[in-house]
Nucleic acid binder design. Sequence first.
DNA 1: CTTATTAATCGTAATTTTACGATTAATAAG
DNA 2: CTTATTAATCGTAAAATTACGATTAATAAG
Lengths: 104, 104
Amino acid sequence: MTPYSEKDEQIALLAKAMGHPARVAIIRLLLKKQTCICGDIVDELPLSQSTVSQHLKELKEAGLIQGEITGVKTCYCIDESNWEKIGKLFDGLFNTTYKAKSCC
Amino acid sequence: MTPYSEKDEQIALLAKAMGHPARVAIIRLLLKKQTCICGDIVDELPLSQSTVSQHLKELKEAGLIQGEITGVKTCYCIDESNWEKIGKLFDGLFNTTYKAKSCC
DNA sequence: CTTATTAATCGTAATTTTACGATTAATAAG
DNA sequence: CTTATTAATCGTAAAATTACGATTAATAAG
């Protein structure tokens, strides 16, 4: 269906999800802070509640984070089941030591 | 000016550049193959010459690749001076071992 | 039951991205 | 000099993204 490899599609999807500074900031927040309530994330970002919610949804759909509704609040966290795999995917691409070729 | 950290902006910019399967495929091609002539890249992708040229421009602007005009052809390659740094940027983010927190 | 809080979703406008064909500029080949 | 080749750029249409306020749904608090 898609003319690209499964791996390339996967990396592109994940990279796209990380392709906005607000989403990078959210990921970093979830890696650092104890609290991961949606409202707390909204407070840390210069964006409206609805926009942050949209960014959270994108990160969730890409498999980077998980959201768990508890009562009236929603707690977000890094999706542990994918995190390591994602790290390795990027590692496999970016930490290929590049050797200069003849052409340039 | 920007409300986000320099690092988050940098990562987002690079991730965005990798956020399309065609561009991931181009990077992988440049990592693997000897030849890096624009025309060869066009041949490997299911896209028109102008579209590939546009993707190459984006990768170049993000600092991921370099292009060198030699006669009537242009030879693209991984930007060695940035490659390692970029790998470390992503490594620093994705290879943070995530420890489950109390909240979810 | 009523009201308040929280976060998702809807509707929408503005911007950006993606893709293409056509054109252009530059070098190479004849 | 003329023609061919290569790749960048232009113009443009369609689609996707980003952001917001308003609304909704669900639980919590009174």
